[in-house]
Amino acid sequence: MNKKTFQLLADNSSGVLSRISGLFSRRGYNIESISAGVTADPRYSRITIVASGDDEILDQIEKQVEKLVEVRNIKVLDPKDSVYRELCLIKVEVSEKNRESLISIAGIFRANIVDVGPESLIIELTGNQSKIEAFLGLLSGYTILELARTGLTGLSRGNADVVWLDD
């Protein structure tokens, strides 16, 4: 089982996301995360999908997604030549006793404390997935009340394979 990160440039119109996710479900492809947002050109949205499967399946995913009428371009984000980020919000139960130590762990990871309550904190952490996993691993002594992750998004380095949207 391999994992690949696909980046799509698709029409920013209603129904696109459902067509893409529908394709994954009906062909039995595994989707690990999907994140979408509008690009600098509002006619398009950029969608990042992390999918897993054997090589033939990952190849089929690329081809079948590319076939969708609204998809302008799909590329694989090679981990060596790309920057990946995920944003994670974590609400942790705290008391007077352990608040300080949690804040210092967050500091090491350059996470931000974005909300402080008498019994909980919300931590905002951005990074690649291994950083997030490592941080969550350190929270094993704490009670995580709620966790929200955006799923991976990314860009390839340099401007060699930029798709120019000039038409």
């Binding site: 033939e56 089929q60 081809k63 076939k67």
Partner: peptide, 8 residues
Amino acid sequence: VDPAEIGK
């Protein structure tokens, strides 16, 4: 004509 058929 359908690239997805090739190699499927």
